[in-house]
């Protein structure tokens, strides 16, 4: 579905990705792991067009993404749930969800999708009229994911869904994502620090370090690969 080859990109002159090859199959769920600063977020931002690549190609079902402005990529079904949540704090939860349906293909399915996301994250149900800024960190993360799901994505990209959350909140998030992968057939890229949680919901995984892919394997085999821990902490465990 998504095919990336030889992709290099960076911010303000600092390279963050070096010649990355990356693939997501139809309906596949792919984890991207690696320590902080490995280039995981840059990879997602380059896919969604917020960061311009220095070189390399990106194709979504054969179509060259490089020619599409970022909002066109959303129209094409690429939906990015950014790191740090970026919910609209001054708008209500309901309005945040409505913005999720901004995509033309999702506009008419707003009510139906809203029911779905409230099933995924029941905690949001009672808060539709509250301002996004008044939610707790965990609830904001739920809202961010829910907002992405509203767009009926063909490929959903989740960037660090558990970042900065307490263990219980992060568990709730992963439960929601697991429910989503059961009910929906959308393809998914999950960028995570918490390797185990991500590997449990994905089939394949890429490990990035210093902007390069250092490991690519089935999720199950990675779960028992010591090299993964070494990329994080640099020591043998």
């Amino acid at each position: 579905m998504l095919e990336i080859s030889e992709l290099s990109a960076g911010y303000e002159g600092i390279p963050a990705l070096r010649a990355v090859d990356f693939k997501v199959g139809d309906r596949a769920r792919v984890a991207v792991l690696g320590p902080n600063g490995a280039g995981k977020t840059t990879l997602l931002k380059t896919i969604s067009g917020v960061v311009a690549p220095d070189c390399g190609t990106m194709r979504l079902e054969g179509e060259d993404l490089g020619k599409l402005a970022s909002h066109r990529r959303v129209e094409a079904g690429l939906v990015h749930v950014p790191q740090g949540r970026m919910i609209f704090a001054s708008m209500t939860v309901a309005d945040n969800l409505r913005l999720g349906s901004h995509r033309a293909a999702a506009r008419d399915r707003h009510d139906e999708r809203r029911e779905l996301v409230l099933e995924l994250f029941p905690a949001l149900g009672g808060m539709l009229r509250r301002d996004g800024g008044a939610l707790s960190g965990g609830q904001q993360q739920m809202l961010a994911i829910a907002r992405g799901v509203m767009a009926c994505p063909r490929l959903l990209m989740l960037d660090e869904p558990s970042m900065g959350l307490a263990p219980r909140a992060s568990e709730e998030i992963f439960e929601g994502i697991a429910r989503l992968s059961e009910s929906e057939t959308t393809a998914m890229i999950v960028v995570e620090q918490r390797a185990h949680e991500a590997l449990e919901i994905c089939e394949r995984a890429y490990v990035l370090e210093s902007g390069e892919v250092v490991l690519e394997a089935a999720a199950k085999t990675l779960l028992s690969d010591e090299r993964l821990a070494a990329t994080y902490l640099g020591s043998e465990i």
Partner: peptide, 25 residues
Amino acid sequence: NRTRTGRAIRAASENWEAATYMGVD
């Protein structure tokens, strides 16, 4: 508050990057 374009404008003025992720031009 009630139109798609109006909400997109509010979203863009609060956080243009997040609005981009919603598909706002």
